[in-house]
């Protein structure tokens, strides 16, 4: 039952990402619900967290909209792993500066992994490598940081407040 709930939320996120979010684009930066969920899930630290839950929205989104398949999944999984490790090693305190730093790093790492992996995919002729231009640094990246950072902080706040995924939360009653 839990998996059905996660699957439903994932499908809703993917559908919203492909229909509603493009209308909120600003200067080539679009709010990314999937990235925001990954960041929030990686930064959030409850007692018992099922890490693999996050794979469901990532894979669904990549299957439907990934071009080519694999780039988004690999980038997001690497970001998730890096943030979890950074949270354990450097940002142990789990206070506001740590959360902000992890969010910022997560978005920058996602962009970096995409650029690096696109070069790798280009070797196999699966896509054209992402070419970084000056506009990317002064236009796209800052707005990406702003939009997706705000969205992931909102998700993190919702995770903390709702207690839906916590051990004593409503989802725990589902088998």
């Amino acid at each position: 039952m839990k998996i059905v709930f996660i699957f439903l939320i994932s499908i809703l996120s993917v559908a919203a990402q492909l229909t509603l979010m493009p209308h909120l684009s600003f200067l080539a930066a679009t709010p990314n619900l999937i990235l925001a969920s990954v960041l929030a899930w990686a930064i959030w630290r409850p007692e018992d967290k099922k890490e693999w839950f996050i794979l469901i929205p990532i894979l669904l989104f990549d299957l439907v909209a990934g071009q080519p398949f694999g780039l988004i999944t690999l980038s997001l999984c690497l970001v998730f792993f890096c943030l979890e490790e950074l949270g354990l090693i450097i940002f142990k305190q789990n206070d506001l500066p740590a959360v902000f730093s992890l969010t910022f790093l997560g978005i920058v790492l996602f962009e970096l992994f995409q650029v690096l992996l696109s070069r790798l995919f280009a070797v196999w002729h699966l896509m054209e490598p992402i070419r970084l231009t000056a506009f990317y640094f002064y236009g796209s990246l800052p707005f990406n940081l702003l939009l997706n950072g705000a969205l992931s902080l909102l998700f993190l706040w919702a995770l903390n407040k709702s207690k839906i995924f916590q051990n004593n939360g409503p989802l725990a009653k589902l088998k």
Partner: peptide
């Protein structure tokens, strides 16, 4: 669907 992240695509 419309995916403007990482390239401009429609489904």
């Amino acid at each position: 669907g419309y995916n403007p992240t990482l390239g401009q695509y429609i489904l």
